[in-house]
Computed example of a mutant assay.
Amino acid sequence: MAVFTPIELSDISQWISQDFDIGQAIEIHGIHGGIENSNFFLDTLKDGKKQEYVLTIFERLSAEQLPYYLELMRHLALQGIPVPMPIENHRGEILFTLKGKPAAIVTKLPGLSRMQPEAKHCALVGEMLAKMHLAGKDFSKTQENLRSLGWWQKTIPLVIPHLSTAQKDLITHELAAQEQFFSSSAYDALPQGASHCDLFRDNVLFDPKGTADSSQDQLGGFFDFYFAGTDKWLFDLAVTVNDWCLAENKQDLDPERYEALMKAYQSVRALTKEEQASWPLMLRAAALRFWVSRLWDFYLPRDAQMLTPHDPTHFERILLSRRSL
């Protein structure tokens, strides 16, 4: 998350009071981190009680694309999955225009991120990810993952001029392998549905329930669904594993975290034989996706307040590690 479009309290006070039933806006401040949208914590006061929300102004996604993400969150929340619930205005709308750009308000989840997760945290994430996949089976809307193979094919030529010879060889060879994989019958056979596609540690909250002991954490919820899409569930799982289950060297898989997440996921939804066979290539696909996007954001950045570009070599190392499996 970042701030590309600054917002002051005076910009929204009247809008919030007139269009919504969430009280009076009393505070708004930008959220640091991330690279896609302008995000703000929004506090309101209703009936003497403070309420907390997140306001997002969408910088890249169009108003035509956004209903998928917002309706998916509402669908999952209504099925008991802990995700932000989009807030309706008095006309029943959940997508608005603010400063000439699409915008939405969602509920703020409880808790904090655990950037150094223990095996227990990985298990909680794996179990809820499987529940989320199953809860999304009857979601009626579909939309492709906008950062999948087609995007890699368009973006890699833009970043290649910035790479070393070894990096060029790695990225082109991996893209060719993934093109072959994506066009295979094995890939077609993989189950799919609504997927988060970006379930990193900073997109999950844990509720400590008033104790400093992280072993008592309960899952607060998943958020930031704005990379979601209709994709292979195995890809969603691979993205999650590549971030949550890293060893201390930050590239290999840690056996304890990995086993905890995979066991918990499969306690809810067992992987098919086709998924098991495709797992090594899908781990590589997930690593390639984020190496490409971080190269793009690093070498072709946009101006933004509080923008924090990520180190692209992190996922280069992860890809090399997954290719060695």
Rank of each mutant, 00 (worst) to 15 (best):
R322F: 09
E316N: 10
R323H: 08
A77E: 11
E8P: 04
K250L: 07
A25Y: 13
I35C: 14
S278W: 08
H162P: 03
F58K: 04
E174W: 01
L124M: 12
L288C: 10
K108P: 09
N89I: 14
L199Q: 08
K250G: 03
V83L: 15
G193L: 00
F139I: 08
F96T: 08
Q192M: 03
P157L: 10
L55I: 03
K263N: 09
S13M: 13
S164M: 05
L134V: 00
P110G: 11
Q79R: 12
S13Y: 10
P86M: 14
L295G: 11
Y187I: 00
E174Y: 02
L9E: 06
A63M: 11
F4L: 12
L219H: 03
L281P: 00
V159A: 12
C197F: 04
G100L: 08
D213I: 04
S164N: 07
F40M: 12
Q216W: 02
G229I: 00
L95E: 13
S185Y: 02
L129K: 02
A287F: 05
G220Y: 12
K273N: 11
A25I: 09
A189M: 02
A194W: 03
L237K: 01
S185D: 13
D138F: 03
F139Q: 06
A123W: 01
L175E: 13
A212G: 05
M85N: 14
I12V: 13
D254K: 02
R317P: 00
A260E: 05
D207M: 01
Q14W: 10
Q79E: 05
E52V: 04
E316D: 10
L319P: 10
